[in-house]
């Protein structure tokens, strides 16, 4: 089975993000392989033990190379980096990635269910449509039997289990597996693995349909009215009064 993993490099969840002149400023921000994509990398390595026939694909800036090295160090066989400083809208991304998928012809494409930079859930679905494939989103359980995939995934009001014939796009999330840490020998080996560089222009795409006009950090000022709960009844009454009379929410 051939498996392609889409990955990206994003600010680490615990890292502080900041902006400068209404644009993100990543100077000094720790970046990491997107945790949601990492579940896909792990799943690929569990399906194809040893990493044979697994490919990581990243569409993004130069710094995405760190995420690629991480995936290779986890065990992915080789990688393709479509390098660009342009942040493309998801429909354009799907066009570029469709070309890569058609070249590589995988059975499964894994991608994170929601990305920690754009907060977008769209890439898996957009790519699936571009390829006219089915998708399984927010997957928590996956079993494969030849070219049949059986999965459980989360939907708005519960869970759904389904079955489909591959190829398919599968979006990953917490609960699917516990991603491994790269071992030192694998980190060394990763340095020698194939990393092909290309550009969006090679797939005939050069502009984005969506422009980022501003990025701002808007922290709501919080009142921080904290009540000591030593006398629970008095504290509870005081809180209810504040919620009713001041916040006017109940």
């Amino acid at each position: 089975m051939k498996i392609l993993c889409l990955i990206r490099q994003v600010p680490d969840a615990e890292a502080k993000v900041k902006t400068k002149a209404s644009k993100m400023d990543f100077d000094g921000t720790t970046m990491a392989l997107d945790g949601m994509d990492e579940y896909g990398v792990e799943q690929a390595l569990r399906i194809n033990e040893g990493g044979a026939n697994t490919i990581a694909v990243a569409l993004g800036s130069n710094r995405f190379e760190d995420a690629i090295r991480r995936a290779l160090a986890m065990g992915i066989e080789r990688a393709i980096h479509i390098e660009t400083d342009t942040i493309f809208d998801v429909v354009s991304q799907a066009k570029i990635l469709k070309a890569v998928v058609l070249e590589e012809n995988p059975d499964i494409v894994f991608v994170g269910g929601q990305h920690a930079d754009t907060d977008s859930q769209a890439l898996g679905a957009a790519l699936a449509e571009a390829l006219e494939w089915n998708q399984i989103t927010w997957t928590t359980e996956l079993t494969l039997d030849n070219n049949q995939a059986k999965a459980t995934h989360d939907v708005d009001d519960g869970k759904e289990s389904l079955e489909l014939t591959l190829p398919a796009i599968i979006t990953t999330q917490q609960g699917l597996n516990e991603p491994r840490y790269p071992t030192l020998p694998n980190i060394m080996k990763a340095k020698k693995k194939e990393l092909k560089k290309t550009t969006p222009a090679e797939y005939g795409i050069s502009t984005s349909k969506v422009q980022i006009v501003a990025q701002e950090i808007q922290e709501r000022a919080r009142l921080n009215k904290l009540i000591d709960g030593k006398d629970p009844i008095a504290a509870a009454e005081q809180l209810i009064k504040l919620l009713h009379e001041e916040a006017k929410v109940i």
Binding site: R222, N224, K225, L226, I227, D228, P232, I233, A235, L243
Partner: peptide, 27 residues
């Protein structure tokens, strides 16, 4: 959580919550 809170009670939820439910009922 208190850093982003507008209101809060510092205390044991086992005693605070029953009192809160009573106070909300009264309201």
């Amino acid at each position: 959580i208190f850093k982003v809170a507008d209101y809060g009670i510092i205390g044991d939820l086992h005693t605070i919550m029953p009192a809160l439910i009573d106070a909300a009922k009264k309201l």
